[in-house]
């Protein structure tokens, strides 16, 4: 079991090209354990692209992304991906499986079979929907289930793409609480959002092309 913790995420001289067009270049920033970075900017500024590059889905055109651990070691691409908790536009929920089945699958996939699934479902307010098939969930409920998956993944680096979308007032407050708690435990959060997370955090403004 790896006991090292992530201490910093450093991005330097990053450039992203999409469809033959430069989305941005020479982007650099750093983030330490316990910090939140809010990505802001108009549609098409490259927020989602940046998150996908950070998660390792999309290769960077140039530049470096480094995760430094508490023992000063650095992680390579595959090892980086295993530190990432991802909350994307799509919730990754199977309509044919129940809420509990969906969550149990991800717990096993992420090697967290021992996770307290019922407790997490309780935290996100889905206890009563536990046996409901995914196809009957509302957009907000799907988002809550995706949040539950993020919690059980126990990943230190959270990459959140519009985490507040489709959530009601209580749901939005819940996201703020989760992010705060995650940072208190030494996690890092990068969130692309149009609405303020309601937290005191660093901001990165990506300009429109």
């Amino acid at each position: 079991m790896d006991t090292r913790r992530v201490s910093t995420l450093t991005v330097s001289d990053l450039a992203i090209v999409r469809g033959g067009r430069i989305v941005f270049r020479r982007l650099g920033f750093g983030l330490s354990a316990g910090e939140v970075l809010s990505l802001e900017g108009p549609n098409g500024a490259g927020k989602t692209s940046l998150l996908r590059v950070l998660a390792g889905f999309l290769p960077a055109f140039a530049g470096r992304i480094e995760l430094t651990m508490s023992d000063h070691s650095r992680l390579d691409g595959d090892e980086q991906a295993r530190r990432v908790g991802w909350l994307g536009h799509q919730d990754g929920i199977k309509p044919q499986l129940s809420v509990l089945e969906n969550l149990a699958f991800y717990a096993r996939l992420y090697g967290q079979s021992g996770a307290d699934l019922r407790g997490v479902l309780d935290q996100v307010g889905l206890t009563r929907a536990r046996d409901l098939p995914g196809q009957y969930l509302s957009a907000g409920m799907r988002r809550r289930l995706a949040l539950a998956r993020l919690l059980i993944s126990r990943r230190p680096v959270w990459l959140l793409d519009e985490p507040l979308a489709a959530l009601d007032v209580r749901g939005k407050a819940m996201v703020g609480d989760f992010v705060t708690a995650h940072c208190r435990d030494g996690g890092l959060v990068i969130a692309a959002t149009h609405e303020a997370l309601g937290l005191d955090c660093a901001r990165l403004e990506l300009g429109a092309a």
């Binding site: 998660a55 889905f57 908790g85 991802w86 536009h89 799509q90 990754g92 929920i93 996939l109 992420y110």
Partner: peptide, 15 residues
């Protein structure tokens, strides 16, 4: 791919 599960699977601790 369409429902976003593929992103999650790609981040799982296996190749």
């Amino acid at each position: 791919y369409e429902d976003g599960s593929l992103d999650q699977i790609a981040l799982a601790p296996m190749t």
